[in-house]
Design a protein around this nucleic acid. Structure first.
Lengths: 178, 178
DNA sequence: CCGTAATATGCAACTATTTGCATATCACAA
DNA sequence: TTGTGATATGCAAATAGTTGCATATTACGG
């Protein structure tokens, strides 16, 4: 299970509440790790029980109080241990491909329709990532250095989306010719 | 849940036992839908209870008997209905990227080591897919037509793996320069 | 004052997946 | 005859993830 470790990687850089983490997941890890707020809150509770993290209630002005979590020494140790283990290959479960596999059971217009919707979403994601990439390029040498690893994961997102869109082109041509 | 639908797409084309399906998953859907034998047997049981599929024990020569599942009319109906619904965007949970995101916590040699292992696996997968592609290209027009949809999913796998490897190159260069 | 949206946290029930165990048939080779 | 490997099916327990519900604070605009 790696939601736990994804949370620790985030908390290692900077302490934060469940809500903060939710936003970081959405903004920074969204294209390679997705987690709902329920999952995050549940996991934080479990991790606290396991002694991986600790927390403090923090009052805020103009906002509800929040529970700010920080890594414990034990948590740090466990994270580093996990980082040293080879991760299992990513599990892919893509239902659009299942659908396409059985595409002969469907009208091509229905498939094209769905394809367009997916294309739209992938283009949107790519646009956002390219904007982040441009911001990154304009940072100072020092800042770029600090963010080098997150930047590599962003590159994965960009390359992945471009590949997806190139493939979608092939599918579109096929469906239109058919 | 789409394991159910992946199974139905497979059974729609050809009846088969749990074990047959397991092999089809591994050989044909492996790069976009992964399922263990336990998952498949459990799901078949549930699907039978729901009336989506039916089965018959089939004795075999030189092999243990098997339960051959076929689609019911109801199953077909439900599958077609599912095919008409827009599928949710694929959920990605890639722990190697989590690790890379926190790469500053790790020695670059450890990361490079792991990268090489992943590269090896992705190259292997790509080689297999390219071989299947070549086989496909040599089929008759009629056969190619029958397999056009599975072929599109194969293309997704090929393009995806090529993109992954191109990205891995970037990561390698970065880690070696560092 | 009322509705809406962002911020903030959580429970309970259900569904899906993984892990570990368990068993049995048959072919083939040592 | 003993072990190995492919074929074939499954249960039970644990873990992980989803869905639906529930609540509260504060800002801001109408």
């Amino acid at each position: 299970m790696s939601l736990k470790h994804a949370i620790m990687v985030l908390l290692e850089t900077e302490a934060g509440s469940g809500y903060d983490l939710l936003k970081r997941f959405k903004q920074r890890l969204g294209f390679f790790w997705q987690a709902s707020h329920q999952q995050i809150y549940q996991q934080l509770k479990v991790m606290h029980k396991e002694g991986l993290i600790d927390y403090q209630w923090e009052p805020q002005l103009g906002k509800p109080d929040k529970k700010v979590y920080i890594m414990t020494a034990f948590g740090h140790e466990q994270l580093v241990e996990w980082l040293h283990q080879i991760s299992k290959p990513q599990k892919i479960n893509d239902s659009f491909l299942v659908k396409l596999y059985g595409g002969h059971l469907l009208d091509k217009v229905v498939l094209l329709d769905e394809l367009y919707q997916h294309v739209k979403q992938h283009k949107k994601a790519l646009t956002i990532m390219l904007a982040i990439e441009r911001e990154y390029q304009q940072l100072s040498q020092q800042e770029r250095n600090d963010l080098a690893f997150p930047f590599l994961t962003l590159r994965r997102g960009i390359i992945g989306e471009q590949a997806w869109l190139a493939w979608a082109q092939e599918v579109e041509v096929f469906l239109q010719e058919k």
